[in-house]
Design a protein around this nucleic acid. Structure first.
Lengths: 395, 395
DNA sequence: CCTGGTATTTCAAGGACTTTAACAAACCCT
DNA sequence: AGGGTTTGTTAAAGTCCTTGAAATACCAGG
């Protein structure tokens, strides 16, 4: 019986210092006057003073010289801000082709960013690249492994939320037999969390949109995945939440045996190209005849008004909308945000999806592309790591 | 900027009394010894003593005579329990055919239960029946409207979570123009919440299964709705979450113009009967030929091994599984629980759904029928009302 | 009928934290 | 140099929880 035991006056001090620290964060990166903290937290000056003293002592905050900038007439204010390099967190994005590592400090300032290609695919080799990336990132930030306050690793596949073991990862052969979580836990003395990459991308997207509602963030490239964020928190379900790639579209698609799901085979980037090729065969004289055809070219042709291309894009949009409509009806998300390679498709795809989804749902969500660049997943990993640190604030 | 301001020692007293009250609730309906509360909460005896004194004074707890039952040798213990008739809550289930009202006390003890039929359909008439039901329930419990601590109303249709206005209710003509929330707020001096009936049924089902995971609770009768409960809390999304009746199954179904959704028209109770009739036409000599055919008869015939009936049930199960599979993939719920009229179908339907869902999803949820009786929705409404009261515990 | 044992409650002293309120410091302007 | 203003510092008071000892009430057994 985990009773909520809240006792003793010390807990008050903890609550108040936490409130002060949060208030300082919300003002980041600007230093805050102590009097301002009093106003923000609603606490009294002595209380804030004691809390700040404790936080400075513990290394969470740094005091600024009163020399710089004091436009107000009166005694120069003591100003504090989050200490740079305090509680740095490590984020990792392990993919089949590249491994990225990044280090943020408490104020979400990027201290290091590394990106390494993976030569031959293979689980053992991959683990070596991960170690290499971690080492370089630590060196770039000038930090030791023992100084890292939290680690979050993004990986493709399905992750068991409890143990951190990878249960299913078709895109990386042998990856399920590697205990990534265990490996990293041995190197770091802090909590290590393994999480699905689409989930972390969703978290990054949710961070961009300040709204706290329900968000379905889709990663759409060769493969197709999604993450669900509800009220700023990741929804995991039994662990495999968001695996939209395995939705079965109406006209079934033959299994290619490469572990991809039906919807990925139907409207993944590769399938879009294939659809365009077929359309070009049936209808000569379209812009889709060009030699080096890829998904981007299809979208470009559609944007230019090529009729065959427009039809292909509309088909793809319709399939996507039909596939996720049941999920949209059940979840009623505020927005569906699309990232990944297809996110560069432009408004042709977007308006088509919006139109179809409007027809298939009761309260159609906003559909938009993610504005985030290639390091979306890494950003999400760092964000979750920072959330973790903020969750178990100071001691 | 809603900063989390946690200050002053008085908040400690509040926190601790709340912890004590929760501990007492968890032991309900048995009275609790004070020493037991000390063990449960981790607080010290004087603290618990003061908290209990305060709660008794405020009318939340009642002391029991030490006379009754003290098997232990030693000074007879003071025992307390939730005061009956403290903070009673009112639940309402407003449907097109019946209106139910119930009153629970703090310990979830049913003080009153009323069930009234609605003669002619019509929004104005319905409001009158609601008032009548409320009045009778209050009289049965011997309470005044001003003593009610929270009200939750279940209604079909889509409810705006913020205002409590009914946005869409095809089954009750004119219902959207009635401001039910406003009407009841005028009568009661406490928070009034309007909520979709399937959502409240989901909450009731979640209460039965102690698990705190993710739950998709389906109400399946003439109509088809669902509620999503995540971690014991209702998921509302933009307001229309769980409207699975509007999922579009592959072979589209002609609109009947009565406001029902495509899936309802395809596999609702009426559609099941219709499917059986068609099957009987095509294949004479089946048990489905009987005159008064309804969904229950179809399931009974299937359970008895009638081949045509088995085929119909399998079709229905397949349609259902295909329809919700995308939502199951996105949500990854621990369980899908089916309530409503179809829940009396027996294991034929259940195993068929489980089989199809296992084929269509990655981590198939448990599929089972709800064990709750007809007042599921009312139970859920009362549960939400109690949650509301427990959320804003004592003053 | 009295005594020891047990479980519980009551009481008083001590410690931790916040608040209030008065005082001191540092800067600007005239 | 002196008033005005903003900010930081300090001491006393109040509230709450905790610790530890004493008191209470009942049972069992001699």
């Amino acid at each position: 019986m985990a009773e909520e035991r809240a006792v003793g006056t010390p807990v008050l001090r903890r609550l108040n210092t936490a409130a002060v620290l949060r208030a300082v964060r919300d003002c980041a990166p600007e230093p805050v006057r102590l009097a301002e903290l009093v106003r923000l937290t609603g606490l009294t000056r002595p209380t804030v003073g004691q809390a700040v003293d404790g936080l400075v002592e513990a290394g969470w905050l740094q005091q600024h010289d009163p020399a710089a900038a004091s436009p107000q007439g009166g005694r120069p204010a003591v100003r504090v801000s989050l200490r740079g390099r305090a509680a740095p967190v490590l984020g990792l994005d392990v993919g089949p082709h590249t491994v990225s590592a990044g280090i943020d400090d408490l104020a979400a300032h990027r201290l290091a960013a590394v990106r390494l290609p993976v030569g031959r695919t293979g689980a053992g080799r991959l683990l070596g690249v991960v170690d290499e990336a971690v080492g370089r990132a630590l060196a770039e930030a000038g930090l030791g492994a023992d100084e890292i306050a939290a680690v979050v690793v993004a990986t493709p596949g399905i992750v068991d939320p409890a143990s951190g073991r990878i249960l299913l990862a078709p895109s990386v052969p042998g990856w399920t037999s590697v205990n990534l979580s265990e490996h990293l836990r041995g190197r770091f003395g802090c909590p290590v969390q393994v999480e699905n990459d689409a989930n972390l991308a969703a978290l990054a997207v949710a961070g961009e949109r300040s709204g706290a509602g329900t968000l379905l963030a889709v990663q759409w490239g060769e493969r197709l995945g999604a993450g669900v964020v509800i009220g700023g928190r990741l929804h995991r379900g039994t662990g495999s939440a968001g695996e939209i790639g395995f939705i079965r579209p109406p006209g079934d698609v033959p299994d290619t045996g490469d572990g991809r799901g039906p919807l990925e085979r139907a409207i993944g980037a590769e399938a879009i190209t294939e659809r365009a090729r077929r359309a070009a065969r049936d209808r000569p004289g379209t812009a889709l005849q060009a030699g080096g055809l890829d998904a981007a070219a299809v979208f470009a042709a559609a944007a230019a008004g090529d009729e065959a291309a427009v039809r292909v894009v509309d088909e793809v949009a319709a399939s996507f909308a039909q596939a996720i409509a049941p999920a949209v009806l059940v979840l009623a998300p505020d927005a569906v945000v699309i990232g990944g390679g297809v996110a560069r498709a432009g408004s042709v795809l977007l308006t088509a999806i919006t139109r179809h989804l409007g027809r298939l749902t009761l309260t159609p969500p906003v559909v938009e592309f993610s504005g985030l660049a290639e390091d979306t997943v890494l950003t999400g990993a760092l964000r979750l790591a920072l959330d973790e640190v903020w969750g178990r604030l100071p001691v």
